[in-house]
């Protein structure tokens, strides 16, 4: 099972994400939510406005796959992409993350992280970034 690192959680919670969804025939729709809560190490919860929900509900119902890129300054400092299965409960969007990629520019762009041993992911992060989340 995928387990987000403390750094990944801190960035997602602090800066939210750009959330990519698509219809089953590939028409993309994106919403941007500036905060999140990480539950159970791998589920990211977003609270949506009515309009945000309206925009993606049809996509999620026919195709629950979603991709997340950290928002705000997270788009610069938190070079990750999270992918998973999305579900809506009322105005809450849950994304159960099952793939994590590095999007760090250069040779490590696209490197899959979640299938590495957890200690190796932590080592990867601490050797490449000095922070453990957005400035507090």
């Amino acid at each position: 099972m995928t387990k987000l690192t403390p750094r990944q959680k801190n960035w997602l919670e602090g800066t939210g994400a750009h959330i990519g969804t698509a219809s089953k025939n590939g028409v993309p729709k994106v919403i941007v939510v500036d905060k999140a809560i990480v539950e159970n190490d791998s589920t990211v919860k977003f609270i949506l406005s009515e309009k945000q929900k309206e925009l993606i509900v049809a996509n999620i119902n026919e195709n629950p796959r979603a991709s997340l890129g950290p928002g705000g300054i997270g788009s610069i400092r938190a070079a990750y992409q999270f992918k998973g299965v999305a579900s809506l409960k009322g105005n809450e969007l849950f994304v159960n993350v099952d793939e994590i990629y590095s999007t760090k520019p250069g040779p490590e762009a696209g490197l899959r992280l979640d299938n590495l041993p957890y200690e190796d992911i932590i080592r990867f992060e601490t050797s490449r970034w000095a922070d453990d989340g957005p400035p507090r």
Binding site: H18, G20, A22, S67, S75, Q81
Partner: peptide
């Protein structure tokens, strides 16, 4: 500026990456 570019496979698997 930083943007996110979201693309999708033909069957709806999206990809969202930051671009500078």
């Amino acid at each position: 500026a930083i943007i996110h570019l979201t693309t999708s496979s033909l069957h709806g698997i999206t990809n969202t990456v930051a671009e500078r």
